[in-house]
Amino acid sequence: MKPINEMKVQFPSRSVNERLARSVVSAFAAGLDPTLDELADLRTAVSEAVTNCIVHAYPDSIGKISLQLRLFTDGRLSVKITDWGVGIDDIKQAMTPLYTSGGEDRAGLGFSVMESFCDRVRVRSKAGHGTTVTLDKYILSRHTEAV
């Protein structure tokens, strides 16, 4: 299926950009007239994925994060977050609720939150090469009229 709208941005893995990523997603989704809950779900899930890149993918350096947004005719908004950092050895373990390698005050719930607030979460990773997380969320409100 071809997207009916799409955009891609890239930014360095600085924590100040967590907010930027949320703003970009809000702006892209705004044309779909999402409910406040749908928008908050998206913003929260994207914040988790981008934070994972900053905390885990590039623990001791600043690297690139790519955020790709695509909208499809059935109202599906697909958000792909890509990094070229350390990668994940064991994806199943990384997605286990409360598991964290992030140290004090990281709850280990990033993937749980993404899964709670999105319709589908896919993770591809290769140790030493990076990780791609794809979040799919259906925006059900008036997406057809908005595009």
């Binding site: 908050a40 913003r43 914040s47 988790e48 005050d105 709850a107 939150v113």
Partner: peptide, 13 residues
């Protein structure tokens, strides 16, 4: 006005 799982970590800590 916004909170992700960082807020959970803050509370647990």
């Amino acid at each position: 006005t916004f909170m992700d799982s960082s807020g959970i970590g803050l509370v647990m800590g």
